[in-house]
Simulated scan of single mutants.
Amino acid sequence: MASTDRRLRIIAGADSFGSDLKDTLVAQLRALNIDVQDLGTDKYYSVGEEIGRRVSQAAATSDPSIETRGLVACGTGVGVAIFANKFPGVYAATCLTPGEAINARSINNCNVLAVSGMNTSPDVASQILDSFLNTPFKSPCPASGSNPWPSDLESFFDSSLPEMSKIGTPKNAEKETPKNAEKDTACMLCSLVKNREFTGVEIMPGGSMSIVRETPTSAFVKFKGGSVEPGHHHTFGHDVVVVQGRKTVWNLSKGEKYDLGVGDYLFTPAGDVHRVKYWEDTEFFIKWEGQWDIFLDEDLAAANAALDKQQKEN
């Protein structure tokens, strides 16, 4: 391909929401005579984790004449990317347009493409994949106005990816002896959220939020232990990954209950009414499929009364 002089191998997989789109893109890859390892269909976290692990291992140990990348698909393309990115040397990006794929390859040397089975048509996904395959790292892209990058930015791109692997490690660790070295057990997301400024969510007592992207909206959210989110719904579905603490979500529309701890993921569809209880101080990453909004379906007193009743019945 134009993006590399090495032979290209793609490891692909999807959950049930992304399997059809994945099959279409795998057929496209094979028509191009690209070596594809199709892991099939499994839960979004299993697929994302396995492909992330394999791409990471390939980057560290494989034949330098072969470049290994990943292709993952789920309903939104977000969950699989989050789990793939748990591994060193993996730069997974959710791309909804060909331009986003070009930017991700040019700026971030993205090596795992994540696509949305619910939001992306096969024709658009085909264009996204083509951009992913044929865009070299540091090449002109929409973010650069399709002009060559200045030398100082190219230098930054070269240094930024190795620096990413140091996030969450103690400062000056290389100067510390094993005896006095301090262990840092924080995960990457916790390290990223540590210094962000949070704004209180007036409609939800005990909650605060730091929005990092708008429409579709991504944010880090904190709730104090003991807080309750009364039953509410959103115009758009949303993905949640817990990075600290423990919470329970009741999907009142479907009559389902989810106990979530660190590392757990949950997707709540658009319009589903849900109530949340935070058992301890909790932080999570959340992504809405569109803009952020919230509509209360009960007040706080009614929510607490319902929770008290459930506790007595149990």
Rank of each mutant, 00 (worst) to 15 (best):
A186Y: 04
S208V: 03
F157G: 00
M204E: 04
I203W: 06
G200A: 14
P162M: 08
L161A: 12
V201D: 01
F156V: 06
T199V: 14
G207H: 10
E163A: 15
F198Y: 15
L161Y: 09
E176F: 06
A181K: 15
A186I: 02
E176T: 13
R196V: 06
M209G: 04
K194R: 15
N195T: 13
A181P: 01
E174L: 15
E176W: 08
K166S: 12
E197G: 09
F156N: 04
M204Q: 04
N195L: 02
A173L: 14
E197Y: 07
I167K: 05
N180K: 12
C187M: 07
T185G: 13
E182P: 01
E202W: 02
E202A: 15
E163Q: 11
K175T: 12
F156G: 01
M164P: 00
K166P: 00
C190M: 10
D158C: 04
G207D: 01
P178C: 05
S191T: 09
I203Q: 13
M164W: 05
M188L: 11
C190D: 08
F198W: 02
A173P: 00
S208K: 13
K183T: 10
P178K: 10
A186L: 05
T177C: 09
L161N: 04
D158L: 08
T199Q: 10
T185H: 08
N180W: 06
S191G: 11
S165L: 10
S159A: 15
G168K: 00
S155D: 03
L161K: 14
E163V: 09
M209C: 10
G206V: 11
P170C: 07
M204W: 04
D184F: 05
N180A: 14
N195A: 11
T185D: 10
C190G: 09
T177P: 02
K171L: 12
K171W: 03
V193R: 07
S191V: 01
T177E: 03
